[in-house]
Deep mutational scan, measured.
Amino acid sequence: PEDLERKVRELQKNGVSPEQIEKILRRDGVDEREVQELVKKVS
Rank of each mutant, 00 (worst) to 15 (best):
6 R>K: 12
33 R>T: 12
11 L>M: 11
43 S>P: 06
29 G>D: 04
24 I>H: 04
16 V>Y: 15
24 I>M: 07
14 N>C: 13
31 D>K: 05
6 R>M: 12
24 I>T: 02
31 D>L: 06
33 R>H: 10
18 P>N: 12
32 E>Q: 07
6 R>N: 11
43 S>Y: 08
33 R>F: 09
15 G>N: 05
37 E>N: 09
36 Q>E: 12
30 V>K: 03
22 E>Q: 02
39 V>M: 13
10 E>D: 11
40 K>L: 03
16 V>M: 15
40 K>Q: 12
8 V>Q: 00
19 E>F: 00
17 S>N: 05
6 R>Q: 11
22 E>S: 04
38 L>V: 13
18 P>V: 14
28 D>L: 15
33 R>P: 05
37 E>Q: 08
17 S>K: 08
13 K>E: 11
29 G>Y: 02
31 D>N: 10
27 R>W: 04
8 V>L: 05
14 N>V: 08
14 N>T: 09
40 K>W: 01
40 K>G: 11
2 E>F: 05
19 E>D: 11
12 Q>L: 15
20 Q>H: 08
37 E>T: 02
16 V>I: 12
39 V>C: 07
27 R>L: 11
11 L>G: 00
21 I>G: 01
27 R>N: 14
27 R>E: 15
31 D>C: 07
13 K>S: 10
39 V>R: 01
31 D>R: 04
7 K>V: 09
38 L>S: 04
35 V>M: 06
16 V>A: 13
29 G>K: 01
15 G>S: 03
21 I>D: 01
14 N>E: 10
15 G>Y: 00
26 R>Y: 06
30 V>M: 10
30 V>L: 15
8 V>F: 05
31 D>P: 13
32 E>W: 09
15 G>M: 04
38 L>F: 01
23 K>I: 14
20 Q>V: 11
27 R>Q: 15
5 E>V: 13
25 L>Q: 02
10 E>Y: 06
23 K>A: 14
3 D>S: 12
42 V>D: 05
16 V>D: 02
9 R>W: 00
16 V>F: 15
13 K>Q: 12
41 K>E: 07
18 P>G: 06
38 L>Q: 06
11 L>H: 02
40 K>T: 11
20 Q>L: 08
43 S>M: 15
9 R>P: 00
16 V>H: 14
16 V>L: 14
12 Q>G: 06
16 V>N: 09
33 R>Q: 10
7 K>W: 07
12 Q>V: 15
13 K>G: 07
7 K>I: 09
4 L>C: 06
9 R>T: 05
29 G>S: 03
8 V>T: 02
43 S>T: 13
36 Q>T: 08
29 G>F: 02
37 E>S: 05
11 L>Y: 04
2 E>S: 14
36 Q>D: 09
12 Q>P: 01
1 P>A: 12
40 K>I: 06
15 G>K: 03
34 E>H: 11
8 V>I: 12
4 L>Q: 04
8 V>N: 00
26 R>K: 11
43 S>H: 12
15 G>I: 00
34 E>L: 15
3 D>M: 12
9 R>Q: 08
42 V>H: 04
30 V>A: 08
38 L>N: 02
34 E>T: 15
11 L>E: 00
25 L>Y: 00
18 P>I: 15
8 V>E: 01
26 R>W: 05
31 D>M: 06
3 D>W: 13
40 K>V: 07
11 L>K: 00
19 E>A: 11
5 E>W: 07
29 G>Q: 03
18 P>K: 14
19 E>I: 08
12 Q>F: 15
18 P>Y: 13
24 I>F: 00
11 L>A: 02
6 R>P: 02
26 R>I: 15
5 E>Y: 09
18 P>R: 14
8 V>W: 05
37 E>H: 07
12 Q>T: 13
30 V>D: 02
30 V>R: 04
42 V>L: 12
16 V>G: 03
20 Q>A: 10
16 V>S: 07
26 R>A: 12
12 Q>R: 12
7 K>S: 04
9 R>C: 15
20 Q>W: 08
7 K>E: 04
2 E>M: 12
12 Q>E: 08
28 D>E: 13
25 L>R: 02
40 K>P: 05
1 P>H: 14
19 E>H: 08
22 E>V: 08
30 V>N: 05
1 P>Q: 11
11 L>T: 00
43 S>R: 14
13 K>V: 06
30 V>I: 12
31 D>G: 09
36 Q>F: 00
16 V>E: 05
43 S>E: 11
6 R>F: 08
42 V>R: 02
7 K>Q: 06
34 E>I: 15
12 Q>M: 15
14 N>F: 05
19 E>M: 03
4 L>D: 01
33 R>A: 13
13 K>H: 09
3 D>H: 10
39 V>H: 03
26 R>Q: 11
22 E>P: 00
11 L>Q: 01
24 I>K: 03
7 K>N: 03
18 P>Q: 11
19 E>Q: 10
4 L>Y: 07
10 E>P: 00
6 R>H: 10
14 N>Y: 05
26 R>H: 08
36 Q>I: 11
34 E>P: 02
12 Q>N: 08
27 R>H: 12
33 R>Y: 08
19 E>V: 06
38 L>W: 02
26 R>L: 15
24 I>E: 07
25 L>H: 02
1 P>D: 11
15 G>D: 03
43 S>L: 15
27 R>P: 03
26 R>N: 07
13 K>A: 12
22 E>A: 06
1 P>C: 11
24 I>P: 00
35 V>E: 03
28 D>T: 08
23 K>R: 11
22 E>R: 05
36 Q>S: 06
30 V>S: 04
12 Q>Y: 15
2 E>D: 12
11 L>F: 04
27 R>V: 10
19 E>W: 00
1 P>L: 14
27 R>K: 13
43 S>Q: 13
5 E>M: 13
36 Q>G: 09
28 D>C: 15
32 E>G: 06
29 G>N: 03
14 N>R: 13
35 V>G: 02
22 E>I: 11
2 E>I: 13
25 L>S: 02
33 R>L: 10
28 D>G: 08
38 L>G: 02
40 K>H: 10
10 E>S: 06
36 Q>W: 00
1 P>W: 15
37 E>M: 03
23 K>N: 14
40 K>D: 12
10 E>I: 11
1 P>G: 12
4 L>R: 06
22 E>M: 07
36 Q>N: 09
24 I>Y: 00
43 S>W: 06
23 K>Q: 13
21 I>P: 01
25 L>C: 07
9 R>I: 09
5 E>L: 14
13 K>D: 08
20 Q>G: 09
3 D>G: 11
33 R>W: 10
16 V>C: 12
35 V>N: 02
15 G>T: 01
40 K>C: 09
34 E>A: 13
43 S>D: 09
40 K>E: 13
35 V>Q: 01
32 E>V: 07
13 K>M: 11
22 E>D: 04
38 L>R: 04
15 G>V: 01
33 R>M: 09
28 D>N: 10
3 D>C: 13
21 I>H: 00
15 G>A: 03
2 E>P: 09
4 L>W: 11
20 Q>S: 07
1 P>T: 12
6 R>C: 10
15 G>W: 01
9 R>E: 05
17 S>E: 05
1 P>R: 14
20 Q>C: 14
9 R>K: 10
19 E>K: 09
25 L>G: 02
34 E>R: 14
34 E>W: 15
32 E>T: 06
23 K>F: 00
14 N>S: 12
41 K>S: 11
10 E>C: 14
42 V>P: 03
26 R>D: 04
13 K>C: 09
11 L>D: 01
17 S>G: 07
10 E>L: 10
38 L>I: 14
2 E>T: 14
3 D>Q: 10
8 V>D: 01
13 K>Y: 06
1 P>E: 11
31 D>I: 05
24 I>N: 03
29 G>M: 04
28 D>K: 09
15 G>C: 10
16 V>R: 06
15 G>Q: 04
17 S>W: 03
3 D>N: 12
6 R>G: 08
20 Q>K: 06
20 Q>Y: 05
19 E>C: 10
20 Q>I: 10
39 V>T: 04
34 E>N: 09
4 L>T: 05
25 L>T: 02
23 K>T: 11
28 D>Y: 10
14 N>K: 13
41 K>A: 12
3 D>K: 08
10 E>M: 09
22 E>N: 03
8 V>G: 01
22 E>H: 03
42 V>F: 02
42 V>A: 09
7 K>R: 13
32 E>R: 05
24 I>A: 04
8 V>P: 00
26 R>M: 13
3 D>E: 13
13 K>T: 07
8 V>M: 04
9 R>V: 06
10 E>K: 05
24 I>V: 04
11 L>V: 00
8 V>S: 01
42 V>S: 06
41 K>I: 13
13 K>F: 07
43 S>A: 12
8 V>Y: 06
35 V>S: 03
9 R>H: 07
27 R>A: 15
35 V>L: 15
35 V>R: 02
2 E>L: 13
18 P>S: 10
37 E>L: 03
39 V>Q: 04
27 R>Y: 07
39 V>K: 02
41 K>P: 06
24 I>L: 07
43 S>N: 11
14 N>G: 09
2 E>R: 13
22 E>G: 03
8 V>K: 01
